[in-house]
Write a protein that binds this DNA or RNA. Structure first.
Length: 501
RNA sequence: GGCCCCAUCGUCUAGUGGUCUAGGACGUCGGCCUCUCACGCCGAAAACAGGGGUUCGAGUCCCCUUGGGGUCACCA
């Protein structure tokens, strides 16, 4: 076991979103790469907003993604005593002080500073209070918060960021920040450091939005006499308007759950997410788990924020096209036996699953998946565009209906005739059905395409699909004949799509 | 507004002073294949934010401008 210890500390205020998943993924990769440990810690000190459902949702999301952790989940609230002790120690050591300024006063001063275009930090009013003054205010029962006493000296807090390089921030630019609320509850900045020290965290890999926290927390490590971890700030994920993606403003599209429901393969999502702000320095974009763990380094994390290329209401792409493309790639190239699991789950959910697919019809099932997956993008397509392979109740889509059926009224007699010939075939396979189809087309003196595309529409409801004679063989004679003999009704409905039979 | 970070095709990105007439991927467009297609194959359009330096030479180093983002809570 190496001494690499990283953590993923979500606050349970909602579902797991892709930004959080990406943070978890990079931490997980780093831990796995170095044979270290990933600690899961639920930062639930904001009791008002933390919920049980949220915690479960986050754990569930991580599990689905395949990101396993080695310790935890720990709950921050369970260590409240430690946090308080640390605060008391800081107070005792002179690294912190009680501040009796009221919130209203603070707000007023901040606004004034903002208006004067100045620094809006705390002005240090209570920093110089004498012990007597403090006693006096304590006796009066005045509420107070505890503030960290930032060193007032020349110079800056400096550290070496593993992705951004040297970072520094002058002491003068850091205000005396609050570490304990007036209700005596310690705040994130402190809790987080105390927990990281206790959990012996070696590397903190988090978003750039934490950079101002890092410089302040470094001061805390120092005051607490602890060695700080290595910091690596990853770029943020923005939307097309360059806004930080968030649950509040982007909704379900940024939730991991959404991708699960829309038929994403978990690893495909991971593969997409890792590419948002990281690359291996080669042209490789598709990685197996082992390949990614091997290739991953903090140094190759980009400094630049990336844009999640998602257009609301896009008719063709329900999320970033590259994400869909990566998912489709996995869908089409993974061993079909591995694909069978997710597809089974999906078909079962849609009431299209037949236990025979696990038994007598296993080969048929796998063969069918292999045949139709080439044009699919998500698992959901199997019960969508691929529905006709698993059920007799499927929709004939409007476009092919109009183009391939309604345009040729004679198909209402041609297709049943073709069905009759199929029924009489000694052998029903790709070769014999093709000969039969082309033979009939020749007799009728029409282009084979009319028969073929008409069949495609009736048999699958789709405009596009695999080679027609592969479809016939897969569907099997019984279903093909039955469906082809029943086309009359297609001409009696409006052309917005209809159900056969 | 203060402070911090960042800046290559529409998007994700390669590029660590000369091999950059800037490479790849997704998307877009065109062609081929063909019974169809959001399959496959081939091809095209598409970027170094601007200005100063440094250097024999700059996408690559420095400075300024501009632009973008983050953060400034008794949230995490």
């Amino acid at each position: 076991m190496s001494d690499v210890r990283v953590r993923f500390p979500p606050s349970p205020t909602g579902y797991l979103h892709i930004g959080g998943a990406r943070t978890a993924l990079l931490n997980w990769l780093y831990a796995r790469k170095h044979g270290g440990s990933l600690i899961l810690r639920i930062e639930d000190t904001d009791a008002k907003r933390s919920t049980r459902e949220s915690i479960e949702g986050i754990l569930d999301g991580l599990s689905w993604l395949g990101l396993d952790w080695d310790e935890g989940p720990y709950f921050q609230t369970e260590f409240e005593q430690e946090h308080r002790r640390a605060a008391e120690q800081l107070l005792a050591d002179g690294h912190a002080y009680r501040c009796f300024c009221s919130r209203d006063e603070l707000d007023a001063r901040r606004e004034a500073a903002m208006a004067a275009r100045g620094n809006v930090g705390y002005d240090g009013t209570c920093r110089g209070l004498s012990p007597e003054e403090i006693d006096e205010k304590m006796k009066q029962g005045l509420p107070f918060v505890v503030r960290f006493k930032v060193p007032r000296r020349e110079g800056a807090v400096v550290y070496e960021d593993r992705v951004l390089g040297p970072i520094e921030r002058r002491y003068d630019d850091i205000e005396d920040f609050v570490i304990v609320r007036s209700n005596a509850k310690p705040l994130y900045l402190l809790c987080n450091v105390v927990d990281d020290i206790r959990d012996r965290i070696s590397h903190v890999i988090r978003g750039q939005d934490h950079m101002t926290n890092t410089t302040r927390q470094l001061l805390l490590y120092d005051a607490l006499g602890a060695k700080p971890p290595v910091f690596a700030h990853m770029p943020l994920t923005l939307d097309l308007q360059k806004r930080k993606i968030s649950k509040r403003s982007h909704g379900e599209i940024v939730s991991v759950q959404f991708y699960r429901e829309r038929g994403f393969l978990p690893w495909a999502l991971c593969n997409f997410l890792v590419l948002l702000g990281w690359n291996p320095g080669t042209d490789q974009e598709i990685f197996s788990r082992d390949e990614l763990i091997e290739a991953f380094t903090l140094e190759r994390i980009s400094k630049v924020n990336s844009v999640f290329n998602y257009r609301k209401g896009d008719p063709k792409f329900f999320t970033d096209p590259k994400a869909i493309s990566i998912n489709a790639h996995y869908l089409r190239t993974m061993p079909v036996e591995e694909l069978a699991g997710p597809v089974k789950a999906h078909l079962a959910k849609e009431n299209l699953w037949d236990d025979a697919y696990d038994g007598a019809r296993r080969d048929w099932f796998l063969h069918t998946l292999d045949l139709i997956r080439d044009r699919f993008h998500t698992i959901n397509d199997f019960a969508g565009a691929g529905r006709a392979y698993f059920s007799d109740e499927y929709t004939i889509e409007a476009r092919p209906l109009k183009k391939n059926i309604l345009k040729h009224p004679d198909l209402k007699t041609w297709l049943p005739k073709l069905a009759d010939r199929f029924a009489g075939l000694a052998v029903f396979d790709r070769q014999t059905t093709e000969e039969t189809t082309r033979g009939l087309a020749a007799e009728l003196d029409i282009k084979p395409g009319i028969l073929i595309n008409g069949m495609r529409t009736v048999l699958t409801g789709q405009l596009a699909g695999p080679g027609m004679f592969d479809i016939l063989e897969t569907l099997g004679r019984e279903r093909v004949v039955r469906r082809l003999q029943n086309v009359e009704h297609l001409y009696h409905t409006d052309n917005t799509g209809t159900e056969p039979r």
